[in-house]
Simulated scan of single mutants.
Amino acid sequence: MTLIQDQSSPIADVSAQARAERLTAAGTAWNERIAADSRAAQLTYSVTGRGIGAVGTEIRAGKHRFLVDEPGALAGDDAAASPVEYALGALVSCQVVVFRLYAQALGLTIDEIEITAEGDLDVRKLFGIDESGRAGFHDVRVKVDITGPDSAEQYENLRQVVDAHCPVLDLFANPVPTSGALA
């Protein structure tokens, strides 16, 4: 990710114990919050983008800022990852979070986790050459590499649980009602 400003607190590696404590505390807090008021389960995210350069975008998400661009072959300056690369990155990062969350809940240990997502995209619709296909990915493959002391069967069960609960995978796998309007 290309940052526009330095982040005040970079992500530091944490011990397995510290991770477990944070995951447990977060799960407990959310369960209590939602039990007290079910409306607390509803979150709204807002992200704003401003066009820069040839086809680049400066994104603001809360206190965070980052750039999105395209490679030169797609009219960009190649100053940052492309929108579809960020989409795959969002999928990978959400999977990491949910793997950690459910490993903790199921009493499994993840020593290391690395996830790769690949997506196939046909640019004919993007460029108006053929309107019959999809503009987005027509196939996405996610490869999860986990090391730890638990059995392959337990990690496969974990993968199935994660796939059922990962918000960004859900965005990829299911249509989401989306509307647009000029301001």
Score class of each variant (00 low, 15 high):
69 D>G: 01
28 T>I: 12
22 R>V: 13
139 D>F: 07
161 V>R: 05
9 S>E: 06
101 L>N: 02
127 F>K: 07
66 F>M: 14
142 V>P: 02
174 N>Q: 09
135 A>L: 13
20 A>F: 03
81 A>V: 05
35 A>T: 15
162 V>S: 09
24 T>H: 10
103 A>W: 01
24 T>W: 08
176 V>H: 05
126 L>P: 05
113 I>W: 06
172 F>K: 04
49 G>P: 02
73 A>W: 11
18 A>N: 14
153 E>I: 12
105 A>L: 12
12 A>G: 02
55 V>T: 08
76 G>S: 02
77 D>N: 14
102 Y>R: 08
61 A>Q: 05
80 A>F: 11
96 V>I: 10
62 G>M: 07
147 T>K: 14
131 E>H: 04
180 G>H: 09
93 S>Q: 11
182 L>R: 09
155 Y>T: 10
104 Q>P: 00
176 V>A: 11
7 Q>D: 00
43 L>R: 08
9 S>A: 11
118 E>Y: 03
33 R>M: 15
151 S>L: 10
153 E>S: 11
132 S>C: 00
168 V>P: 02
97 V>I: 13
174 N>C: 01
119 G>K: 02
65 R>F: 12
99 F>T: 04
86 Y>Q: 08
166 C>F: 06
74 L>A: 00
36 A>V: 08
121 L>I: 08
46 S>I: 13
124 R>C: 07
130 D>M: 03
55 V>Q: 03
43 L>P: 00
72 G>Y: 07
97 V>H: 10
172 F>S: 00
122 D>F: 01
178 T>D: 03
152 A>W: 05
22 R>H: 13
116 T>K: 13
159 R>N: 12
121 L>R: 07
144 V>A: 14
163 D>A: 15
